[in-house]
Design a binder for these strands. Sequence first.
RNA 1: GGGACCGUAGUCCAGCUUGGAAGGAUGUCGGUUUGGGGUACCGGUGGCCCCGGGUUCAAAUCCCGGCGGUCCCA
Length: 557
Amino acid sequence: MNNMNKEENYSEWYNNIVRAADIIDDRFPIKGMPVYKQYGYSIIRYILKELEILLDNNGFYPSWFPNLIPYDIFKKESEHIKGFENEVFYVTPAKPVEEERDIKYILRPTSETEMYYMFSLWIKSFRDLPLLTYMTNTVYRYETKATKPLIRGRELLWNEAHTAHRDLDDAILMINKSKEIYSNLFWNRLHIPHFWVKRPDWDKFAGADFTYAAETILPDGRFLQIGTTHLLGRNFSRAYDIIFEDEHPFIKIDKDTLEAYDQKNNKYLINFEKNQITIKYIENNEIKLVYQFQEHNNGDINEGNKELMKDIENKIKSIFNNVELKKQKYVWQTSFGLSMRTLAALISIHGDNKGLILPFDIAPIQIIIIPVYYSDEDKNKVIDYSIKIYNLLRDKYRVKIDFDDSKSPGWKFNNYELLGVPLRITIGKREIEDASITISIRMYNEKYYDFKADIDNLGNTIKKIIEIYENKIIERAKNYLNNKIFKTNNVKDIENNLNANIVFKAPFCMKEDCAENVKKNYSLDIRGTDINPETAEGKCIFCNNDARYYVYIGKSY
RNA sequence: GGGACCGUAGUCCAGCUUGGAAGGAUGUCGGUUUGGGGUACCGGUGGCCCCGGGUUCAAAUCCCGGCGGUCCCA
């Protein structure tokens, strides 16, 4: 290993550790397509398993769609193709490509298009909704820039979830649910500090109405997106004809009719705002919200209350002449994904100069038993005793004894530290003599911390020690972001800290050309606003236009 | 999109400027030793010097093209 100093040179440390700890082997001769080795792939499987259990518990079911997508199906949604067409791998069946029409298939860069083609065949009734499915798979994007194992590659191992809903409200609930699921995984299982931002419009997923992203910050002060969730609205259902017949019709009233009606009748309160039309109905001197339609609806009005709906349906029909009642509706959709960048974040944030540090649940080896002996006579006793301990633990934990005679105990200590094994049990003459064991905890940048324990109450002792171990990781994770975000109202603070390995939070105008200037002048990205935005009373620190919110600004992967 | 640097044993690298017998460390294998924080020593093993073309009596070395990688800037 060249450099294992995380503080000194994070990038080099990272590249070294993913190789040394047997996560990946990137000598496979295609750029951005490393081989996942047994130890790394095991960790990945434990992470994905935790995620899949969470999805299953929330009503999702797994599915598999082919790796190839017919080119003409891929091309249906115009915004989507704009975002991806320059980075897809084209596949042709044993024939040289001369023109575009020779391209038959693409390797999926993400699965919206192929899945939604099928959704349109599957979804016929409101009873088919919501449709919730996920797929753990690989997708392919022809990255031309620098690739980095697990962070940016041409083959991307991830889990993508796709949903279809009756209405906007239900889709929004799913967006929130997806954030909960991901944050649950990040905080409770993996202890990865993160926060959610809303991407600026110019940076949202191609084909989405909006995109939320879970961001963390790596030790070098750059953002790493570890999860995203998109409100797809009805952009894809329109392109792929995902239409269902609903219980109630929606009511299409043209704007002129509504406005004319509003002026001569005060029974219905019809309110036009910037992006929203609200219709309220007065009954028994009570004002009830009847319809609300936002820009997503694009002229269609969603029902609120079911019973009221039928009633209103008839009333509206009797009042307006040119009202159109339709039960055929386009579904509302969301999609969200979580890639093995999660593992990159886990390695980068928890790891130290000795190697990996893994949350207990996802460690491929949770407890390593290392026998220590000086003579053949001792050896037999020590190994018998080790097997005895192993048998006490094997049902509950992933435990392993290292019998390898060709490596010294010291070598093994260092090796399992590198692999991030949480607990180590050392067994030698001393332990046999007083029927004890020595349990040690993997510590951040320090030697293992030793505990002496009796065999009698081993189960409980181990449980307590696991708790100590986990709490140490959680404690560090909680404090991790404290010094990484610099909140400021002064552009000088940014200029003076461009090389400080931190990100900034500052009032920003949300204009794309201003963001382009920031990129040009400082090489910083406008990453997005908090999910619950922090109001800024003032001016954009870059262009001095009005700024409504604080946004996150920094370098990113 | 623009630029800089790099590719030599499984790994990390020296050699290239000034063309002339492919080197070291590490790993790996055999052995002795050692073992509670990467034991030490001895012996062996391992190379289409990234690929293709060119210049030359002669190319790891110089030139052109490609492939692969690292980093910086937009």
